[in-house]
Amino acid sequence: MTFSIALRCPQTGHFGIAGTTSSMAMGARCLFVNHDAGAVITQHRTDPRLGIMALRYLRAGLSAQEALDAVATAPGIEWRELAIVDRNGNTAARQGSHQEPIHAKAFGPGMVAVGNILRNDTVTAAMIAAAEAASDKPIAERLLAALDAGLAAGGEVFPLGSAALRVSEHDDFCVVDLRVDKSAEPLTDLRRLWDAYAPQQANFVERVLNPDIGGRATNSLDILAKEGAQA
């Protein structure tokens, strides 16, 4: 009852990952990404530990398929749905034999989409097509387009309730990490969050990398002094 997509931009080497489901907290449980490793989707009776484990293997230099093979020895693996993109843009996906239908997967250049308990088996292919068609746009826009296309193609069987969007351009932190929970229209709300966040993204990143430069244009003490003068 989830559909997600992970990709690596061939021009920048940056990673993005996004997904939506009828369950809560999919952003915390299903989507794992780090710029020095790759991106990992873990869903269907989700085990978040598999995402963390796969990133470790990728960081150690394993390919997407090698990392997938390594985590495929975990207990309960036949209930899991996994997809990986590595730092070279290689992809891999695995859908366990116990997964509930309809489940599907699709691949594109440096990208992979997977879904389960879907209305039809065209959902993931539609996601890949939308992400490819938006290749000239920022990663976040490509991911949002993919989620919209997945829903338009049929989506999952149950009403959506949560969604998440993550983009990694630097090691160990995401420049975009937006999540929606308990929403009647999570993709609409996720788009609204992105539209509000996008103009601020560069400044938030600057605060991480160059705190002497990044920040508000006006000092908070100046604001308090001005308010005091007006009182």
Rank of each mutant, 00 (worst) to 15 (best):
S63Q: 00
V167E: 04
S168P: 12
A72E: 07
R80I: 14
Q99R: 08
A104L: 03
G115A: 09
E185P: 00
E132W: 01
M1P: 13
D189N: 13
L143N: 04
M53H: 10
H14D: 15
A28F: 11
A83M: 04
A67V: 08
L165V: 12
R191L: 11
S162C: 13
V123P: 05
Q200M: 05
N219W: 12
E66W: 12
T12A: 05
H35Y: 14
A145N: 13
E169R: 14
L82H: 00
S97Y: 07
G161V: 08
A126P: 09
A130I: 12
A39V: 03
Q43S: 15
P211R: 00
D36N: 15
E66K: 13
G51E: 01
G161R: 14
G215E: 03
D171C: 11
Q99W: 00
M1L: 07
E100T: 10
A202M: 06
T20L: 09
A106V: 13
R80S: 15
A54P: 05
P186K: 09
P101D: 15
E156W: 03
L209V: 10
A104T: 13
N120Y: 02
N203I: 05
D86C: 09
A184R: 12
Y197K: 07
R166G: 01
Q230S: 14
I139Y: 02
D36L: 13
F204P: 03
L221S: 15
P75H: 02
